[in-house]
Computed example of a mutant assay.
Amino acid sequence: MLRFEFSSLINAPVEVVWNFHERSDILQKLTPPWQPVEIIRREGGLGVGAISEFRLWIGFIPVRWIARHTECIPYQLFIDQQIEGPMQSWVHRHQFQTENGQTRLTDIIEYELIGSEITESLLHRWVNARLEDMFRYRHRVTQQECEQK
Rank of each mutant, 00 (worst) to 15 (best):
L2A: 14
G101F: 01
N11P: 11
L27W: 05
R93C: 03
D133M: 08
V91P: 00
S7Y: 01
L77P: 05
Q88G: 08
E43Y: 06
Q148C: 07
T142Y: 06
F135S: 06
V37N: 14
W34R: 03
G45Y: 06
Q143V: 01
W65P: 12
I79D: 00
N128Y: 04
N19L: 00
R125T: 11
D107K: 06
I58Q: 09
I66P: 08
I51E: 04
Q88W: 00
M1Y: 11
V17Y: 07
E5L: 09
P74G: 11
N19Q: 08
S8T: 15
D133W: 05
L46T: 01
G115Q: 03
R93W: 12
I118V: 13
G45C: 08
E112W: 01
F20H: 00
Q97Y: 05
L9F: 01
F20P: 01
P36R: 13
C72L: 05
F78P: 07
R42H: 12
I61D: 01
C146D: 13
H94P: 04
W34K: 05
E112D: 13
V14E: 09
Q143A: 08
I10T: 08
P74C: 10
Q81K: 14
Y137L: 02
L46P: 07
Q144I: 14
W90K: 02
P74Y: 06
Q76K: 14
I10M: 05
S89H: 01
E120L: 00
